[in-house]
């Protein structure tokens, strides 16, 4: 661990935090360019593997930076990268949400809430679509998805049980 690497981590990830409009995954190409090509913290292959690990773990999708920070500068690097990736964007959300609370009765807020709702539902459908594409699902996985969707939509069973059961189905090699 050295100060120079930690400084690079701080500057790189806090600027990526502010640039990541539309979510953490939008800055992956830039993150790859800097960490693999410029700083040589990890190899091309390692970047791809580390991305897969971060997607497999629960929680927010930007935790790839935790692993990259760990590889570059150990535990302090991991913590610094994680904080640098969250704090600048978080401050922006804080400022916007203050304005949002104050504008409770304005026509603009009402129009945004009502108007954006159908768009958000469309975006959620799109993310479900992209997720199943990324997971490279075959017909058996789609069938499992269809069964689970029916259960989630029509029953009140705790979704956690269904996800666990689906995990067991996968573990048994049925999909």
């Amino acid at each position: 661990m050295n100060i120079r690497t930690l400084t690079q981590i701080l500057i790189l990830f806090s600027s990526l935090s502010i640039l990541s409009i539309g979510g953490g995954n939008t800055v992956l190409p830039e993150m790859h360019r800097k960490t693999v090509d410029s700083y040589h913290w990890l190899s091309n292959k390692q970047f791809a593997d580390v991305f897969a690990i971060s997607q497999a773990a629960p929680g927010p999708s930007i935790l790839i930076v935790t692993i990259i920070g760990y590889k570059a500068a150990g535990i302090p690097g991991a913590l610094l990268a994680t904080l640098a990736m969250m704090i600048p964007a978080g401050i922006l959300v804080y400022l916007v949400s203050r304005v949002w609370e104050k504008a409770k009765d304005s026509s603009l807020r009402k129009a945004i809430e009502k108007g954006l709702a159908p768009l958000t539902v469309g975006l959620i459908l799109a993310s479900g679509w992209v997720m199943s594409k990324a997971a490279d699902h075959d017909w058996r996985a789609y069938a499992l998805t269809a069964v689970c969707t029916a259960i989630f939509t029509t029953t009140k069973i705790n979704p956690l049980f269904i996800v666990a059961a689906a995990g067991v189905v996968g573990w048994l090699g049925w999909i």
């Binding site: 997720m131 199943s132 997971a135 699902h137 998805t145 269809a146 689970c148 996800v163 995990g167 996968g170």
Partner: peptide, 9 residues
């Protein structure tokens, strides 16, 4: 398996 259920959710 868990990913298939997550898409379903």
């Amino acid at each position: 398996g868990a990913a298939a259920a997550a898409v379903a959710l």
